[in-house]
Nucleic acid binder design. Structure first.
Lengths: 128, 128
DNA sequence: TAATCTGTTATACTTAATATATAACAGATA
DNA sequence: TATCTGTTATATATTAAGTATAACAGATTA
């Protein structure tokens, strides 16, 4: 899996890393049970500090997306069986600002939903 | 219009303020041509610094959502005629991480799109 | 005209988040 | 026994965020 960190971005490195791993899992680039590079290896590959990687991994563990075996390594959790209903309540809080800005800039409901559907379609494509 | 700032939030104050004004415009709480409180008045109302308000206002001007008259005040721009096609390209970048996380946590396409539609419906409700 | 409002700019300061750097520790593996 | 794994601790540098004061120029109003 190829990771691209934008060092000029306002988004923190650990968050970019976390997001890309989540997307890797979602879009099928990272399979269930697959092992992630060690914190040191990942840090060396990207050219960042070990602790920055560790921060991303820890967040992923807290969210249940990976399992960390102390002394062994980090593997992708079986999220197909997972169902976190509570996150459904957070979705509106996350997308409301995006929809508001989009609407102000002349983007209508159909256009917005199409973009969402495109993303879901690329998820299904990665799964087949 | 009622503004609620969460001082314990990770989201910066100026960004919360900006988002709530954008949402105010979108959901019809702020009408076109309506004047916003001055940077000093708004700062006093919320209990924050003048510069923090100014930062939010400046961002809104850069995005074309308000017009600032130096010496006079800040008014809501006529965004009904505005169409910023370039933002349509940014939408996937903004919602992709949200969809990815939602999908990992067992939320499917229908559930996600329903949340989006609910938000759009509340926009239409505010406009009628 | 003078006073007072508006946004703007400049400077200085404090706090917190981010990221790095080293080191050491305990569990797992070869 | 080495060497890998994640983890914890400590220290440091940098940057973003927020505050505090002050001054400036344009607009408004008494």
């Amino acid at each position: 899996m190829i990771l691209k960190i934008d060092f000029a971005s306002e988004t923190p490195i650990y968050e970019q890393l976390k997001n890309q791993i989540v997307e890797g899992i979602t879009f099928g680039l990272l399979k269930e049970g697959e092992q992630l590079p060690s914190v040191r290896q990942m840090a060396e590959d990207i050219g960042i500090n070990m602790h920055t990687v560790n921060k991303a991994y820890s967040i992923l563990r807290r969210e249940g997306l990976v399992i960390i075996y102390k002394g062994s390594g980090v593997i992708v959790n079986d999220f197909s069986k997972m169902r976190n209903k509570s996150f459904l309540k957070e979705v509106p809080l996350l997308i409301k600002p995006v929809i508001a800005e989009a609407y102000c800039k002349g983007i209508n409901e159909e256009e917005f939903l199409d973009k969402c559907k495109e993303i879901f379609n690329s998820i299904y494509k990665g799964k087949k």
